[in-house]
Simulated assay, not measured.
Amino acid sequence: MRLCAEHVDWRVHGRRLLDDVSLTVEPGETFGLVGPNGSGKTTLLRVLAGLRRPKAGRALADGRQMQTMRPHEIARAIAFVEQQADTLDRLAVRQAVALGRTPFLTPLSPWSEEDDTIVDQALAEVGLETMAERLWHTLSGGERQRVHIARALAQRPRALLLDEPTNHLDIRHQLSILRLVRRLPITVIIALHDLDQAMDCDRIGVMEGGRLVDIGPPREVLTLERLRHTFGVHADFLDDPEQGRPVLRFRRAL
């Protein structure tokens, strides 16, 4: 699925959170959004997920304006994993993941064995198959995040948008989730704080003050000058023979 933002603006109480942002993410691409806190990453993700209507400009999914699409149409094509979401409902893990199938259920197409299989696969993909009956309130923050990712996978989306999905995960699960995301044969847009993780994206976009200030392959965009100017840090690139790519070594903040 191709996702586009065309000259998108978004304001809240007179404050401009997105300023004339234009972006096209190609089908099957893994695109990273990076930038300081408050730079507009989450707002842009929500616009591209069809959850916010731009104040100006437009968002498109495969050439269709999202403003003209019904919510269930968007939900069948695009899954969004928030940075942190909670529920007061007394749900088991499996029930929470099964919510990902909701857009596909109708009176003529009720729950089926295929839906059971899809939920089982989503649980297995995030390593939660043994916790399917655990209740939501007994889960750690990292476990809850993995449930949200499984719920998104259960939607079988053509585009997956994730807002800093590794924030609450230990390093082992960070790496496993990122490996899973990278091998998905769908369009992925992922907001990241960890710039080393962003190096594995096909392309990245740098947000600063609500503007998309740079876009391209990670090594071309994350120059030492960009790291100083946008992120306020001094860093060096080191060659990692094991990973086969450059890695960042941060020396100090400005």
Score class of each variant (00 low, 15 high):
Glu208Ile: 03
Asp163Met: 10
Arg179Met: 06
Gln83Met: 09
Pro165Leu: 09
Arg94Lys: 14
Arg219Val: 15
Leu60Lys: 01
Ser39Asp: 08
Phe250His: 03
Arg53Lys: 15
His148Ala: 13
Arg249Gln: 09
Ala56Pro: 01
Glu113Cys: 05
Arg144Lys: 15
Thr187Ser: 10
Gly210His: 09
Gly141Ile: 05
Ala5Leu: 13
Gly38Met: 13
Asp163Tyr: 08
Arg64Trp: 04
Leu195Tyr: 05
Leu128Gln: 00
Arg211Asn: 07
Leu18Asn: 09
Ala159Phe: 01
His7Lys: 14
Glu220Asp: 15
Asp19Gln: 14
Arg172Gln: 10
His13Leu: 09
Glu129His: 13
Pro218Tyr: 02
Gln67Pro: 00
Gln83His: 12
Phe237Leu: 15
Thr130Phe: 06
Arg179Asn: 12
Asp240Arg: 06
Ala96His: 01
Gly38Phe: 08
Leu91Asp: 01
Leu45Trp: 02
Gly38Gln: 12
Pro241Gln: 04
Pro217Phe: 12
Asp86Leu: 09
Thr30Met: 07
Asp202His: 15
Arg226Trp: 02
Leu128Ile: 08
Leu224Gln: 08
Val126Arg: 00
Glu6Ser: 11
Val21Cys: 08
Thr117Phe: 02
Val119Met: 07
Asp163Asn: 12
Arg94Phe: 02
Asp20Cys: 07
Leu195Lys: 05
Thr166Leu: 04
Lys41Phe: 09
Val47Cys: 14
Thr24Lys: 04
Asn167Lys: 08
His148Lys: 06
Asp236Cys: 07
Asp196Tyr: 03
Ile215Val: 15
Pro107Tyr: 06
Gly14Phe: 06
Cys201Thr: 04
Leu88Ser: 14
Asn37Arg: 11
Ala49Phe: 02
Asp196Asn: 15
Gln95Trp: 02
Glu73Leu: 00
Arg52Tyr: 11
Leu238Glu: 13
Ala152Ile: 09
Arg58Ser: 10
Phe104Ser: 08
His229Ala: 15
